[in-house]
Design a protein around this nucleic acid. Structure first.
Lengths: 244, 244
DNA sequence: CGTAGGATTGAACGAGATCAAAGCGGGTGG
DNA sequence: CCACCCGCTTTGATCTCGTTCAATCCTACG
């Protein structure tokens, strides 16, 4: 196995576009600057300009927006293999904040790295467009979640999605996964109050569907949960390479 | 003025990436197949494969997802100049449905048109990535809207966003715009019931902020509405070309 | 052993949903 | 030209899900 192909990002992009050696070498340069962040560190702030992008190698992060009244909306949780802050480079200023939820290892990518890569290895632009569209499809599901599902359904859906995503990168399995989120994080992601999140989790536990406890999510009834959430993996896993 | 540059999509993409003559000619080929659709026509169905993409020239459309219980979540409204259904091509199958809200004129774009364009004129891939990221930023705002704002704030935000977007393409002005949406459409976009939408509109009208009536939106107090909505144009208008 | 951040529970409240029923306007067919 | 209908809007009454406020309880950690 070629070491140059080993990064999770490379694997992800290769599923869409067959990458040449030049593409792969260019991508490999994204991993020159390995950095670590401590849990709680704010890696990026809404409105910040000249922010870097990151490729998450280890740990969890979350992206969010604050409201004037102090409320907060979590946009997404980021797990290993995810690309963070692309828009902050494309638009020179970040439209959201980014916080490390655990201690994190990530590769820092500067704007010229990315823009240069698109110029030198144009297929990468297509590959990144694809990856970004996958994220967009996920966001569409989140929109449906917030707009049209009840609190219990929302929670079920979020937990299943996280499980499926972690599975994709080889973390956790069908029985569950370990999860550093607090009930406050869940609340901010689902548009609920932390108190209600607690009740919802209790209900899901008592109904024998999922258990969320001390950093562990356990699927007690995968099919039942899937049915409740209306969770369809369709928007997550996609067919093989489109461009050869 | 070069006729080849005249399409709204071309103008949009040019604001991010300086396009060469080859790029422009390639883009122009997107406009070979002009089609019209009647109001109410379903242009694309969730799960459909081999769907085309479209560049909207005239009229309004909306993208949505249906839920098993019959509920519906509108993801976005599309106005002239918008590119529709990119993901249906990138993923070979559409993750949402698309409906013409008015009679529509649009250019139909087939998968090979787009994928070929990315191969022949690689800068277009970067340009489309940028346009797609702009849409993503808009979706982030919608997420905040649904997750953390009250019904009145949501409505205010949606109406202001529509106004700003229409303004961008030369339709409507600071005083208002004409709007083919019914209260049901608004409800499905905002995660509310149509009945409550009606009450919210009444309140906004009585407070002298906006009037929504017989296909016309009138801003009675632009600044007040902006303050209520927490509407910040930052996520919509971006700086000039990043790639020269 | 004290403390702080997170989890849990109860009681009261409220925003928005749901149910039910009129109005209204414009298009269609008799 | 009128009567009818259908889709949309408007209003009232009631109900419910989720919030808010207020404590208390863990438990890991210094």
């Amino acid at each position: 196995m070629n070491p140059i192909e080993s990064s999770p990002l490379t694997r992800k992009l290769s599923t869409f576009v067959a990458l040449s050696d030049v593409d792969l070498e260019t991508l490999a340069r994204f991993h020159r600057r390995r950095r670590t962040f401590l849990a709680g560190h704010e890696m990026m702030h809404e409105g910040q300009s000249n922010a870097s992008a990151y490729i998450l190698a280890e740990g969890w992060a979350c992206s969010y927006k604050m409201l004037p009244d102090g409320g907060r909306q979590v946009i997404n949780f980021q797990i290993p293999g995810d690309f963070l802050g692309l828009r902050s480079i494309l638009f020179r200023t970040s439209d959201l904040s980014l916080e490390a939820l655990t201690d994190i290892e990530a590769s820092e990518v500067f704007a010229p790295d990315i823009l240069g890569a698109f110029a030198e290895a144009p297929r990468l632009a297509t590959a990144v467009l694809w990856a970004s569209s996958r994220d967009e499809a996920m966001m569409v599901e989140h929109l449906v979640n917030l707009g049209r599902r009840s609190a219990v359904e929302r929670m079920a859906h979020l937990l299943m999605e996280l499980g499926a995503r972690l599975n994709h990168v080889g973390i956790g399995d069908r029985t569950g996964f370990s999860c550093p989120l607090t009930q406050y994080h869940l609340a901010d992601a689902l548009g609920l109050s932390a108190i209600h999140v607690n009740r919802v989790l209790r209900q899901l536990r008592e109904d024998g569907l999922v258990t969320f406890r001390q950093g562990k999510v356990t699927f007690n009834n995968f099919e039942g949960l899937q049915a409740l959430a209306g969770f369809d993996t369709g928007y997550m896993d996609h067919a093989g390479p489109l461009l050869r």
